[in-house]
Nucleic acid binder design. Structure first.
Length: 419
RNA sequence: GGAGAGAUGGCUGAGCGGUUGAAAGCACCGGUCUUGAAAACCGGCAAAGGGGCAACUCUUUCCUGGGUUCGAAUCCCAGUCUCUCCGCCA
């Protein structure tokens, strides 16, 4: 969420910035809401002061007047609150401003590739898709998932279930041992205010699985990504500067409705309602966001390097970035059956955008209270990594070679084959 | 599920109708002392919002939302969360 003061102090730059994201605001409405708000605050405070003086003075003859003041204050307050809410909902629906070095563009076609790594495998045969491979191995079962749960779910069985678990473990070990992240096993259900903090709400409620509890209780949601929970660890906190940076990693299932993507990626397990993802979250001093984003992205690509999977790194253009992001790198892994790269990780710096929503702050050297910077990235999406391994490591006989680094995590198997 | 207890600043914790934005301790920061450090002593130390070029000043905030009162951290109601005991159960 943006700060109205910052917006006003440089309105033109702000409007230009968000217009890069194809976002327009009614600036007159915004300014008039702000004016009304401040006007009402001043009126209210004047009356409050008057009232305070009376009640401290103890002059009984003025008590009647004080009563009158109370009702006036109440009236102005409720009016002010209404305006304030309007203002807040206006502001909380505006996306983050892109950093200057983010390429401008409308959609994903304007993203720009900045690095390509790894050798694309050459097959002497026509490479099969992961679903075909898994089906042949009898280790992927979509029909069964349809029966038990519906579309966009999957059963992994046997050594592919093991592979999924191995991947999670391998990634977490690497991030904790080599990259300085602290492992977290978080709740998979988030409260409404938590979802608001990272920007999933109010705008993207349709993408979330909402849980039906008691009618009275606060709404709860299945997390769409561990980012939500991990980032909210610092909500409503004022951290000491020497506690930063904080780096968290968690492997969790993620739940997404994928509303609006009907008919897209319906085959295979590219796009599921539920999938495992190893998530990285960093909480840093605000001026360190840029460096941390590079660092985090390298942690993510480090996994692909270790797994010897070919990938490319892309910087998202202004039109393709997520709501809360100021800059995003996507990492795309090579998918042989589709003959193209597919997203396997997305690393974003959110600057202080989420921190303002969450009231996550720190005191710097000069005792100033500042909003922290938050970053999140997948390190990596486990389901898609599994797909990439199946397809890139497939052999002509339908077996799957296991990447060297994973063998210890796979009961020392060096390939997956029908028993 | 049954019975109790509680929620106060970065933390611990006092206050239970007015001079309390809130004692005290710890932590933290500055100073004195010291060759240096520690100890001791002195001083400082909440956040958000409004007004002001600024010095500064005003308002709000003691879990949340209502209520009583001229006045609420303190009383009443509802909710959320935490803890203890009993029951049940991965």
């Amino acid at each position: 969420m943006h700060n109205i003061k910052d917006i006003k102090s440089n309105l033109e730059v702000f409007i230009k910035g968000i217009s890069k994201r194809n976002f327009k605001i009614d600036e007159n409405l915004l300014l008039s809401l702000d004016n009304k708000n401040r006007d009402l605050i001043q009126k209210k405070e004047k009356l409050e002061q008057e009232k305070k003086i009376i009640s401290k003075g103890g002059d009984k003859s003025l008590f009647e007047k004080s009563k009158k003041l109370s009702s006036e204050i109440e009236q102005i307050s409720s009016e002010q609150l209404k305006i304030k809410n309007e203002l807040d909902s206006f502001l909380s629906n505006i996306p983050n401003l892109p950093l200057d070095d983010v390429p401008e563009g409308k959609d994903e076609s304007h993203n720009s590739e900045i690095e390509k790594k790894g050798k694309i495998p050459e097959f002497k045969f026509k490479p099969k898709s992961h679903s075909e491979l898994g089906d042949n191995l009898k280790m992927i079962d979509f029909d069964l998932a349809t029966k038990t749960s519906g579309s966009r779910f999957v059963f992994l069985k046997n050594n592919l279930a093991l592979l999924e678990r191995a991947l999670s473990n391998f990634m977490i070990d690497k991030h904790t041992n080599e990259n300085g992240y602290t492992e977290i096993s978080p709740p998979l259900i988030a409260s409404e205010s938590t979802m608001y903090g990272t920007g999933q709400l109010p705008k993207f409620i349709d993408d979330q699985f909402e849980l039906k509890l008691d009618d009275k209780a606060e709404k709860k949601f299945l997390i769409p990504t561990a980012e939500v929970i991990l980032t909210n660890i610092v909500r409503d906190k004022i951290l000491n500067i020497n506690e930063l940076p904080l780096r968290f990693v968690a492997s969790t299932p993620c739940f997404r409705k994928e509303a609006g993507s009907y008919g897209k990626d319906t085959k295979g397990m590219i796009r599921q309602h539920q999938f495992y993802k190893v998530e990285l979250v960093s909480i840093v001093e605000i001026e360190n966001c840029k460096n941390e984003l590079e660092r985090m992205t390298n942690c993510a690509t480090g996994i692909l390097d270790a797994l010897e999977l070919p990938y490319r790194k892309v910087v998202l253009c202004t039109g393709d970035m997520g709501f809360s992001a100021e800059k995003t790198y996507d990492i795309e892994v090579w998918i042989p059956s589709e003959n193209k790269y597919r997203e396997i990780s997305s690393c974003s710096s959110c600057g202080s955008f989420q921190a303002r929503r969450m009231k996550a702050r720190y005191k710097n050297d000069t005792k100033q209270t500042l909003f922290v910077g938050t970053l999140n990235g997948s390190g990596l999406a486990v389901g898609r990594t599994l797909i990439a391994i199946l397809e890139n490591y497939q052999q002509e006989d339908g077996t799957i070679k296991i990447p060297k680094v994973l063998i210890p995590y796979m009961k020392n198997l060096d390939k997956i084959s029908i028993k």
